[in-house]
Design a protein around this nucleic acid. Structure first.
Lengths: 149, 149
DNA sequence: TTGACATGCTTGAAGCTTAAAACATCTCCT
DNA sequence: AGGAGATGTTTTAAGCTTCAAGCATGTCAA
């Protein structure tokens, strides 16, 4: 059924449009990018910092990706690498004070943008969409389990 | 409200998960990528071919992006560049016979994968999700119009 | 305890993506 | 006709992303 295909294309284009708008605003107002913002956001929720592996799992990207991202953000003074106390293989990443300040500003703007972008939907519509996306994720997890089996 | 943020994060992660799965399968089974597939798909729907600009609009990516993509696919013999008859600035891109054959195979598999990935949702759920995503896109278009004004 | 395998990170090569600048051609007004 | 501005493509530099390979460290079983 082409119905499934249309659903997927619409899901993809909706996400792409929102992402493009957020990227544009992050660049225009903060001269930063979505991956950088996402990395700061992950660290902001983790006062103890995160290992690079934990970051890459949360961001759903590869380890090598996080290595490069962290290196650039470190050069800008927004995050700091420090050896993990327990595991000498691991590197723990945390926000610097400057990084925390930058993220606080970006985060507030980002939340307002997202609210604005979904403003055309009623509360009930947003709730229904949230629920259905949850169902879609369940559907996906079913697939991945089968693959692993 | 953090509710909007959660909705956005769920929308993003759902899309990312599906995209990752499709990428993985395109690579494993056809040794290709999603952008290549998307470009072939755009051309497949256009028997007369498309200018690079038309392709970039359909794919929602920049012109420069399409230039590179087209160059690689041309090197692989799947698409052909030819000057546009009406406009000497424009380059018209079309599938070669080999490109059409490759896309036919990939397309059939892709449609089946998408069907599989959404199999956990009922028809009613898929219809509702499709409708709500349409509403979300309306919401976005409202924003963009305001910006342009 | 030591060797085999797992895990955490980095590196390198390739490809994807963008923004901005450059260039060619087109359109349209005067 | 001429010129101003729009449009179509390419190029460049920078960053993002993946995969695969490599190195360091950890774990666990014989």
């Amino acid at each position: 059924m082409a119905e499934n295909l249309r659903l997927w294309l619409r899901l993809l284009s909706t996400t792409t449009m929102i992402e493009a708008e957020l990227r544009r605003r992050l660049r225009a107002q903060f001269n930063t990018t979505l991956p950088r913002f996402d990395l700061l956001a992950a660290l902001d929720r983790a006062p103890e910092g995160l290992t690079l592996g934990e970051v890459s799992a949360r961001m759903m990207v590869t380890n090598g990706n996080v290595t490069g991202l962290a290196t650039r953000l470190e050069a800008e003074g927004l995050v700091a690498r420090r050896p993990d106390a327990q595991d000498r293989r691991a590197v723990r990443l945390r926000l610097t004070p400057a990084g925390a300040r930058a993220f606080a500003q970006q985060s507030a703007a980002h939340a307002a943008w997202v609210r604005e972008l979904f403003a055309g939907l009623s509360g009930a519509e947003r709730a229904a969409l949230h629920r259905l996306l949850g169902r879609a994720k369940q559907s996906l997890n079913g697939i991945n389990q089968e693959e692993a089996a």
